[in-house]
């Protein structure tokens, strides 16, 4: 008898002291507190796997590469004749870093779900927390927050490093103040969040890492190339609704087909409209994820 009770030592009558029950005191309603608990757990999950840190390291490596690019551009400029300098058109490092940041955060989003399905952790996770939509919401918020930080920070660091390296060389497009560049950089950073959410949604629906990453990469970077091969004006029309060109348009540039002179000017979205279409992508993929999560049995 005492042996049996011994195992329960420390328990208060009718309750447990070993494990504190979630009380009703505190901020917000029960739904909000549940979401807060799941958010904290998802943040912990993301931090405690190596893949997260590998992905962040890859982004950092690309930022470093843009610094190398700036060094190269500076030395190129120094060796140019005034005629060559006048016609130089160079991409800025904060523009170059957007695409690698997008891919990396899309992979982070994909892995948020697929790593759990591939390992079986999803079964354990949804057993201890059966509110699947709450889990989806919390996971999306955590991944979006990281992607936002990564998108903004990578652009800003690339920008600042680039300016420091270029110094006072009057390279076209490299002279404007930060306040002038910032809106475009901010939008570039937002596109990184969009890609992360699309990756997360596709990962939740497909449940396979290889499948989801392939789908996202094909969609993101292969489809726009094929769209370019279409006869005008369809090359620009189709291209302009794909995420790569939406990013361009949101940053104030024309769709690639127009930019390359292969389609008449005037096709495409204004930056706010492009942003709205990108937001629609997020709504649709996360909606599909919610349906997939709630309708299907957990694998």
């Amino acid at each position: 008898m005492s042996g049996q009770e011994g195992a329960r030592d420390g328990d208060a009558p009718g309750g447990r002291t070993a494990v504190g029950l979630p009380g009703d005191a505190g901020f917000g309603g029960p739904g909000i507190r549940l979401l807060a608990d799941v958010l904290a757990a998802e943040w912990l999950k993301l931090r405690t796997v190596r893949s997260t840190w590998y992905i962040l390291a890859v982004v950092a490596a690309f930022v470093l590469l843009t610094a190398v690019y700036s060094l190269y551009l500076g030395s190129l400029w120094d060796g140019m004749s005034p005629r060559q300098r006048a016609t130089l058109s160079a991409s800025r490092p904060e523009q170059i870093v957007v695409m690698p940041a997008q891919i990396c955060m899309a992979v982070l989003g994909v892995l948020a779900f697929t790593s759990e399905y591939v390992t079986g952790m999803a079964r354990t996770g949804f057993t201890v927390m059966p509110r699947r939509k709450t889990v989806l919401a919390a996971r999306a918020v955590v991944v979006a927050a990281v992607a936002f930080g990564v998108g903004q920070a990578s652009g800003l660091v690339a920008f600042v490093a680039g300016r420091l390296i270029i110094g006072d060389r009057p390279i076209p497009d490299f002279a404007g103040p930060l306040s002038e560049e910032f809106p475009e950089m901010f939008v570039g950073g937002l596109s990184v969040v969009v890609l992360a959410m699309v990756g997360l949604g596709v990962g939740a629906v497909l449940r396979s890492t290889a499948g989801a990453i392939t789908a996202v990469v094909v969609y993101l970077y292969l489809l726009p190339r094929f769209a370019l091969l279409l006869p005008e004006p369809w090359n620009a029309r189709i291209g302009s609704v794909l995420l790569e060109d939406l990013t361009n348009q949101a940053m104030g540039r024309p769709p690639m087909a127009v930019d390359f002179g292969e389609a008449p000017a005037g096709i495409g979205f204004s930056p706010p409209a492009a942003l709205a279409v990108m937001f629609l992508y997020v709504v649709v993929t996360l909606g599909a994820a919610a349906v997939a999560l709630t309708r299907r049995d957990v694998r």
Binding site: D37, A40, A41, L44, K45, T48, V49, R50, S51, S115, E116, T119, G120, M121, A122, R123, T124, G125, V128
Partner: peptide, 17 residues
């Protein structure tokens, strides 16, 4: 059904949270 990359402590901590 566990993520092999986490430590036992982290695995439990994530689920407990």
């Amino acid at each position: 059904a566990v993520h092999g990359g986490r430590s036992a402590f982290d695995h439990l901590r994530c689920l407990a949270r």
